[in-house]
Design a protein around this nucleic acid. Structure first.
Ligand SMILES: [Zn+2]
Ligand SMILES: [Zn+2]
Ligand SMILES: [Zn+2]
Ligand SMILES: [Zn+2]
Lengths: 133, 133
DNA sequence: CGTACAACCTCTAGCGACTGGAGGTTCAAG
DNA sequence: CTTGAACCTCCAGTCGCTAGAGGTTGTACG
């Protein structure tokens, strides 16, 4: 009862080359092979891929995910580290949101101020040319 | 009255290798050289670098910047295109903020639900392992 | 059992936007 | 004229994939 890479891909939504890539970087153990050297995945491999998928969807970096996966393998340990990683990631996300929001404000200001005339009078171009932002 | 690459770097806040990189990808014209093949930048080159710097700070991609630079060279044209690029970029920023905000909500939910016990009971790990996010 | 062909394999290169290093040369101050 | 900081080129690495070339295997159908 095992899956070819394409089936694993369909089940997890992770593209075939990406699954091989994950194996290459050591995020996923090399699976068993058929005699013809084709990969065959077991249910737990697919579960691991799903885990990776969800973590990626939440924006975790590969290094975070590797740690989370390792931690998830010791179910009796304290989850302190797990929560730490998650909170750290959350604050990264917060920082990015703040940065983008500041950016957004500036962009809105620029388009609002533009009187839609000549490039030479365009506030957008003026702002970008300005001495120091 | 021209500047060595290090001076251009100090004046614009763009690192030396990045300036060379910009030249390599054609964003910046190859400047004049000394007899010893060292780059010498003129005031307008530094201005162009400042423009690039500000646009990068606002999150514009290189392709956008190339277009904006080209447009800024025809000051008598209508600034319609400039505004179009800016508005398009603004909506990209909006989309990214929305995505990050959704992500953030989920992360907050996860850490909130965690009761800080065993990894085996951790909601963070559970959520990441869940069938479909 | 033979054949067709989808799916698999490895390997390499490319994306965007830089960044860093090695190893060698030039400029300018003293 | 010497020193050494700053310059030069070229190459590799970052992150997380993605795509392609060119060849092999698994399987379903006749
Ligand atoms: Zn993170
Ligand atoms: Zn305008
Ligand atoms: Zn954009
Ligand atoms: Zn927990």
């Amino acid at each position: 009862m095992d899956y070819a890479i394409g089936e694993a891909s369909r089940l997890t939504g992770i593209k075939v080359p990406t699954i091989r890539y994950y194996e290459g970087i050591g995020l996923l153990a090399a699976p068993a092979r058929t005699e013809g050297r084709q990969r065959r995945y077991r249910v737990e491999d697919v579960a691991r891929l799903n885990f990776i998928r969800h973590a990626r969807d939440l924006g975790f970096e590969m290094a975070d995910i590797a740690e989370l996966l390792a931690l998830s393998e010791g179910p009796d340990q304290s989850c302190k580290k797990v929560d730490e990683i998650t909170r750290r990631h959350l604050s990264e996300v917060d920082r990015r949101i703040a940065q983008l929001t500041a950016l957004r404000r500036e962009l809105v200001r620029m388009v609002d101020e533009c009187s839609h005339g000549r490039v030479g009078d365009c506030r957008v171009i003026e702002t970008l040319s300005g001495e120091t932002a």
